[in-house]
Simulated scan of single mutants.
Amino acid sequence: MKVYVDSQGALVNIGDWDTCIGLDENGDMVETNPIPDGVREIDAEVSYTSAGRAFLSENYYDLRRCEYPSIGDQLDALFQAGVFPAEMAAKLQAVKDRYPKPD
Rank of each mutant, 00 (worst) to 15 (best):
M1K: 03
K2C: 10
V3T: 04
Y4I: 05
D6F: 00
S7C: 05
Q8F: 07
G9M: 00
G9H: 01
A10P: 00
L11C: 02
L11H: 02
L11Q: 03
L11T: 02
V12N: 02
N13H: 09
G15C: 02
G15S: 03
D16P: 11
D16W: 05
W17M: 02
D18Q: 08
T19A: 12
C20F: 15
I21P: 00
I21D: 13
I21V: 15
I21R: 09
G22E: 11
G22V: 07
D24L: 06
D24Q: 07
D24H: 04
D24E: 05
N26T: 13
D28E: 14
M29Y: 15
M29D: 15
M29G: 00
V30K: 10
V30E: 12
N33G: 03
P34C: 12
P34S: 06
P34I: 11
P34K: 07
P34H: 06
D37L: 14
D37V: 12
G38H: 06
E41W: 03
E41H: 00
E41M: 05
E41A: 11
I42P: 04
I42D: 02
I42V: 11
D43N: 10
A44R: 01
S47A: 15
T49A: 03
S50H: 13
S50G: 12
A51L: 06
G52Q: 05
R53C: 05
R53S: 15
A54S: 05
F55P: 00
F55G: 10
L56P: 07
L56K: 03
S57R: 08
S57M: 08
E58V: 10
L63N: 07
R64H: 13
R64M: 14
R65P: 09
E67M: 00
Y68A: 13
P69E: 12
P69G: 05
I71H: 06
I71Y: 06
I71Q: 07
D73W: 01
D73M: 05
Q74E: 14
L75C: 13
L75G: 06
D76P: 05
D76C: 10
A77I: 00
L78C: 15
Q80H: 03
A81Y: 03
A81G: 04
G82L: 04
V83R: 11
V83G: 10
F84K: 08
P85Y: 01
A86Y: 01
A86R: 07
E87Y: 02
E87T: 08
M88A: 15
M88S: 14
A90C: 10
K91E: 12
K91M: 05
L92N: 09
L92M: 13
Q93C: 12
Q93I: 11
V95A: 14
K96W: 04
D97V: 09
D97F: 00
R98I: 04
R98G: 04
Y99M: 10
Y99S: 08
P100I: 08
P100E: 06
K101R: 15
P102W: 00
P102T: 07
